[in-house]
Amino acid sequence: MPQHKSCKKRLRQAEKANAMNRSVRSAIRSSLKVIRTAASKEEALKEMPNLFSMLDKAAAKSRAGFNANRAANYKAKAAKVVNALA
Rank of each mutant, 00 (worst) to 15 (best):
Q13G: 04
F52K: 04
L85K: 07
L55W: 06
A71N: 12
S40W: 02
A14H: 07
A38Q: 00
N18F: 12
R12V: 09
A58F: 05
A76W: 07
K41N: 10
R36T: 02
K5Q: 13
A44I: 03
A27Y: 02
N83C: 06
V81F: 13
L55T: 05
I28S: 02
A68K: 15
K46E: 03
A27V: 00
K8F: 09
K41E: 13
P49G: 03
K33H: 07
A68Q: 15
V82Y: 09
K75P: 06
D56L: 05
L45R: 11
S40C: 02
R12K: 12
M1I: 08
A17D: 13
S30M: 04
S6Y: 08
N50T: 06
F66K: 03
A64K: 05
A86N: 07
A44F: 03
R22G: 12
L55K: 03
K46S: 02
C7F: 11
A86L: 06
F66Q: 05
K8L: 14
K80Y: 12
A84R: 07
N21H: 14
A19Y: 08
N18R: 12
E15A: 03
Q13D: 13
R63L: 15
R22L: 05
M1A: 14
A68L: 14
H4E: 12
C7L: 14
E43Q: 04
E47K: 04
K61F: 15
G65S: 08
K80F: 12
M1V: 11
A38N: 01
R70I: 15
S23Y: 00
N69W: 08
A76D: 09
R22M: 06
V81L: 09
R25Y: 07
E42C: 02
H4I: 09
K5H: 09
A14T: 07
S6N: 10
I35N: 02
L55D: 06
A79W: 05
L51F: 04
K8R: 11
H4D: 14
L45D: 13
M1F: 11
A19M: 10
T37D: 04
K75E: 11
D56R: 10
R63F: 15
G65P: 03
A60W: 13
A60Q: 15
V24D: 00
A64C: 12
S31N: 01
A27R: 03
S23Q: 00
K57D: 13
F52R: 03
E15F: 03
K16E: 13
K57F: 08
K77V: 08
I28W: 02
R29M: 09
V81H: 12
S26I: 00
A68C: 11
M54Q: 03
A59Y: 04
K80T: 09
N21C: 12
I35Q: 03
A14P: 00
T37R: 02
K9D: 06
